[in-house]
Simulated scan of single mutants.
Amino acid sequence: MFIIYGIRSKEHPVQYTHNVYCDNCGHTNHTAQAFTKYAHLFWIPFFITSRPILLTCDNCDHIMDKRELSKEDKKRVNQAFFTPLNTLPFFLGVGLLLLAAFLYHLDNQEIRQKELAMLDQPQVNDIYIADYSKLFNGIDFEGYNFGALKITSLQEDGISFAVSITSYRSDYGVERKLREGFPDPDSFVDDEILIPYDDVRKLYNSGTFSGIHREKADNP
């Protein structure tokens, strides 16, 4: 995949100033040209890198850079060219990233609320994505630390889980396999583990359990 990025420049409409003195001849009439240079990714502007302005004396054609102006003149010329209305579009990429982050946060909040509800009312066949390196102390999984635990029964003193045989490098690997279909019984070892109800919630809050999935009931 190619990533297209770089710096581009946009020229603003020419304006005419009548109150900036020419360093060469002393006249005050200038033709001003302004540019906004901005960084882009796939042609989407992300932020402004600079805003040069050139002033050409209408009398002697002497050219002055904005940096040569006094503080007051520079402020006046900047205000003539650059306004909030023509500035905001150059931060479109940042705005899109913030929006995406906000939507991602909302989605995560919704998922968490659903998972908390499943914690409160666990059901047989619920699948918990687990970090085996945290759940089973002292065992080296050689980087394949994530797997699936399936509820097999709800006991008086805790939840009985079957542990998946296959483990993955990340919880995303488990998520991907779950999207392909819930594991069949042969996917789990014969021995089950019993975890007290309170400990299940603690393991979820600590991140040892990073996700909970429930198979959707078939429509009648």
Rank of each mutant, 00 (worst) to 15 (best):
M1D: 04
I4Y: 06
I4K: 09
Y5C: 12
I7D: 04
R8A: 14
R8P: 15
P13R: 09
V14H: 11
V20T: 11
C22P: 10
C25S: 13
G26Q: 04
G26T: 10
G26I: 03
T28S: 12
H30Q: 05
H30Y: 13
T31A: 05
Q33W: 04
A34R: 07
A39P: 14
L41E: 07
W43P: 04
I44L: 12
I44A: 11
F46Y: 02
F47S: 07
S50E: 15
R51H: 14
I53L: 11
L55D: 10
D58T: 15
N59R: 03
C60V: 06
H62Q: 05
I63C: 10
D65N: 14
K66G: 06
K66Q: 11
R67M: 14
R67C: 03
E68R: 07
L69Q: 00
L69D: 04
K71E: 08
K75V: 07
R76W: 00
V77P: 05
N78L: 08
N78H: 02
T83V: 05
L88G: 05
P89E: 10
F91K: 03
G93K: 00
G93R: 10
V94G: 13
G95A: 11
G95L: 14
L97R: 01
L98P: 12
L98D: 02
L98N: 02
L99Y: 03
A100F: 02
A101T: 02
L103K: 04
Y104T: 15
H105W: 11
L106I: 08
Q109W: 01
I111S: 03
Q113H: 11
E115S: 03
L119Q: 06
Q123W: 00
D126C: 12
Y128C: 13
D131T: 06
S133L: 04
S133W: 14
S133I: 13
L135R: 00
F136G: 03
F136H: 06
N137H: 09
N137D: 11
N137A: 14
I139N: 08
G143R: 01
Y144C: 04
L149N: 00
L149S: 01
E156F: 09
G158I: 02
F161A: 13
F161C: 12
V163S: 03
I165Y: 02
T166L: 14
Y168A: 13
Y168H: 12
R169P: 06
Y172W: 04
Y172N: 13
E175L: 11
R176Q: 07
R179F: 15
G181P: 06
D186H: 11
F188T: 05
V189W: 14
V189S: 09
D190V: 08
E192A: 09
I193L: 11
I193P: 02
I193S: 05
L194F: 02
P196W: 00
P196V: 04
P196C: 06
D198H: 06
K202N: 13
K202T: 09
N205W: 04
S206Y: 03
S206W: 02
S206H: 00
G207A: 01
G207I: 08
G207P: 08
T208K: 08
F209A: 04
F209I: 03
S210F: 13
G211L: 14
H213D: 15
R214A: 13
E215W: 00
K216H: 01
N219Q: 10
